[in-house]
Amino acid sequence: MEQSDEQLMLEYKAGRKDALETIFLRYKYRILNFCWRMLGNRSEAEDVSGEVFMSLFTSAYEPQNNVKFSTWLYTIARNHCINVIRQRSRFVNESHNDNAKIFGGRELGEGPRDNLNQKEAGDHVREAIQFLPPEQMQAIILQHYENFSYDEISQALGCSVDKVKILIFRAKENLRVQLAFILKEGQL
């Protein structure tokens, strides 16, 4: 039977160093892709995910009662990503207060309408998610791409479950507008 992350971490604490390698193999793609979705840049994603695992290898993780290891690890990844995002000037200079009317140089809800191929559609989805306010973006990424429950998301984001519900709902509302041309009947 496969050992849980928490058990592996306990074994690592007990001196079984290779337990951490098992953890790494379990999470390397997930963390890398989480960072990729948060940052939208492969090079930055690789750098940040490397830092996340270095934090894992060097930090003293203590299994806690209500916080799963995965939630803890994603919280670290999220914090690293936020640091990178904060360093980006556009996040300093641009405001997301009104969900900015301009999306990738065009009006929201507009764009290349017909004959979208899968790659182009994927790029639009990436841009739309990247354009969400940070908390909404984190919530929707954790919920959709990392299969976190609302409860786990609340732990990772350090907020209430009700707030997570609202964040995800708002994120979907924004995405519905931004990706309206993809969501039309027959486009998918």
Binding site: K28, Y29, L32, N33, W36, R37, R42, A45, E46, Q118, A121, G122, V125, R126, I129, I140, H144, Y145, L175, L179, I182, L183, L188
Partner: peptide, 10 residues
């Protein structure tokens, strides 16, 4: 639609 954004490989 959200699934159209593909994963990356390391």
């Amino acid at each position: 639609a959200l699934d159209l954004w593909p994963k990356i490989e390391s």
